[in-house]
């Protein structure tokens, strides 16, 4: 589904990703872990097409297309979804209106019929139950005055409505209490299928107790320095990132 080859990317003059290689297939859950500043969020942003980040070399193929040729909205239409670390607020635009616009734009480009108000509300209500989203929340302006937990739940709620092929969860666990974490994890697990794939970007292993990854990769200085299965996440939790640093240092010496 997703094939990243030798990806290098920078912001301004600073190179952040220094050669990423990663293959993600349908049905897989990948976790990308790493210390602060290792390039995790940059990778998520590059995949979603944020303009500040310049790809200097390498390639990304997504469902057979060159991802780097596509605009952010084209990527979304094709099935790429990013759950933002810091979801933005849009005053005066109700969450419902925003979601309807998004869903119908995406459906239109996927060759599906647009949903009328009634069908959309029906779809929305189903997914609201799953994410334990309250009616009052969707009536409010998008993310405006939402608590940290509400914002993150709202991201996964949007993921449910947009039905992506590849979902990237950027630090979705940060700022969540344990109850909210469980709701988010339940939602993601429910959406997981053999047709889609999920990349979880996280600093901690906490979320991975609830969403079990098939692969865990450790990002360090803009490269994946170690890959393994879920056990690697436990090891990181136990030992911290220091031993990775030492190991990398050892290799380079």
């Amino acid at each position: 589904m997703l094939k990243i080859k030798n990806l290098r990317a920078s912001i301004g003059d600073k190179e952040i990703l220094t050669g990423i290689n990663l293959d993600v297939n349908a049905g897989e859950v990948h976790a990308i872990m790493g210390p602060n500043g290792s390039g995790k969020s940059t990778l998520a942003s590059v995949l979603a097409g944020r303009e500040e980040y310049k790809v200097t070399s390498g390639s990304i193929t997504f469902l057979g297309d060159d991802l780097l040729d596509l605009s952010p909205e084209e990527r979304a239409w094709k099935g790429l979804f990013l759950a933002f670390q810091y979801p933005v607020e849009i005053p005066g635009v109700s969450t419902t209106n925003f979601l309807k616009t998004a869903v119908n734009n995406v459906r239109e480009h996927r060759g599906l019929e647009k949903l009328d108000a009634v069908s959309f509300l029906r779809l929305m209500r189903e997914q609201m139950k799953l994410m334990e989203i309250d009616q009052s929340l969707v009536n409010r302006s998008l993310n405006e005055g939402f608590s940290g937990g509400e914002k993150k739940r709202n991201e996964i709620f949007q993921m449910a409505l947009l039905d992506p092929k590849l979902a990237i969860l950027d630090e979705t666990d940060s700022g969540l209490d344990i109850d909210a974490l469980k709701i988010v994890a339940n939602g993601v697990n429910h959406l997981k299928s053999s047709d889609n794939a999920i990349i979880i970007v996280t600093h901690y292993q906490r979320l991975l107790e609830y969403i079990v990854p098939d692969f865990v990769h450790v990002l360090y200085n803009g490269q994946i320095v170690k890959s393994g299965t879920k056990e690697l996440a436990f090891e990181l939790e136990e030992k911290g990132y220091e031993w990775i640093r030492e190991e990398v240092a050892g290799i380079s010496i």
């Binding site: 097409g49 605009s71 909205e73 979304a76 849009i90 635009v93 998004a102 734009n105 995406v106 947009l162």
Partner: peptide, 21 residues
Amino acid sequence: FYCNQRGISTEDAVALIVNGY
């Protein structure tokens, strides 16, 4: 960018934001 990522083109996004405002 947030709107774009949700599949909303920039022009539609501006209209959405302005009309909300």
